[in-house]
Simulated scan of single mutants.
Amino acid sequence: MAIQNKVSLPVIKRLPKYYRYLTNLSAEGREKISSSELAHMMGTTASQVRQDFNCFGGFGQQGIGYKVDVLRGEIGKLLFGDGERLSTILIGAGHLGSAVSSFISRDTNGYRLIGVFDINPALFDKEICGVPIHPLHELESFCAEYHPEVAVLCVPRQSAIDVAGSLVSYGIKGFWNFSHYDLSVEYPDITVENVHLGDSLMSLGYRLRNQE
């Protein structure tokens, strides 16, 4: 499978959506799908679907369409690699952290939660999804021993600012960031996925209030 040197971020961000729809189609027993049908589900064009897949060498034959399970498998390889889950730590064991940790811990997501950290002494020695909650001051020694690759930040903006630099120095390669601080600005060489739940909610409100 040939991959272009640089795949654009919009194409990368569409891959999980393709995978989700193909998973549903497979569960329904669907064997084949055309680029036009897939485009209709995705809310885009058949040409865009083909262009997206051509970034990775293409997965079907012109006029024949795509085998659902084969296409799902190929996109799964792009998203999950060889199946080795990324070792992950979570900072912030409050309500949001608890909810997010449950999502991370699902085997299908490609991540392995190995440690949770917080500053609240009442949470120490407790667990989230079977993973112990550690004091934040143990973060450096934990990272030195277990070498996590991903940090999930479920903390306020200032706390994210305070801890991000240390995490980078400890070897963290990527952030799933729920704070209101855009880490990608200060750490351009680190892979960051910023999640702004408020932005999504405000966008929904705008669309509802401005329907024709």
Rank of each mutant, 00 (worst) to 15 (best):
V152H: 13
I104G: 06
F103P: 14
N210G: 08
D199S: 15
L25R: 06
S35A: 12
W176I: 08
Y146E: 15
A99H: 10
V11C: 11
V68A: 07
G83K: 03
F124N: 01
F103W: 04
V155M: 01
L208W: 04
I33V: 11
G57L: 00
M41F: 15
I64W: 13
P135H: 01
A27I: 03
D69T: 09
H180T: 12
Y146M: 13
Y181N: 06
P10H: 01
E138N: 12
I75Q: 09
Y66N: 04
L153W: 03
V131T: 09
G97S: 02
L204P: 11
R106D: 15
I190A: 03
E212D: 14
V68K: 05
L96D: 03
E138H: 05
Y187N: 01
S101I: 14
H196A: 13
D118F: 01
Q62W: 09
L79Q: 00
D52S: 04
I91T: 07
V168P: 05
N109P: 06
G73Y: 13
D52R: 00
A160V: 11
P188I: 14
K173A: 10
R72E: 14
L15Q: 12
S47W: 11
K6S: 09
R106H: 05
S87Q: 08
L197T: 12
T45C: 11
K67Q: 15
Q158R: 14
N5F: 11
V131Y: 05
G58M: 00
G81Y: 08
L123G: 01
L197S: 02
F124D: 02
L139W: 07
L78F: 02
K126F: 11
V150Q: 12
T45G: 05
D162Q: 14
S169M: 08
I114Y: 02
S179P: 04
S105D: 05
K17V: 15
S87K: 13
V185C: 10
V131N: 14
A93N: 00
I114C: 01
A93F: 02
S203E: 10
L204T: 14
I190N: 08
G81I: 09
A27W: 00
G165L: 11
T108S: 12
S105C: 07
I75M: 10
C143H: 08
E140H: 03
P156M: 00
D199E: 11
S36F: 03
R106G: 14
V11A: 11
V7S: 04
C154V: 01
N109G: 12
S26N: 13
I190P: 08
K126M: 13
P148W: 00
E28I: 05
G110N: 07
N194M: 07
S203T: 08
A39Y: 07
D69K: 03
Q48G: 01
F103I: 15
G65R: 00
L183F: 11
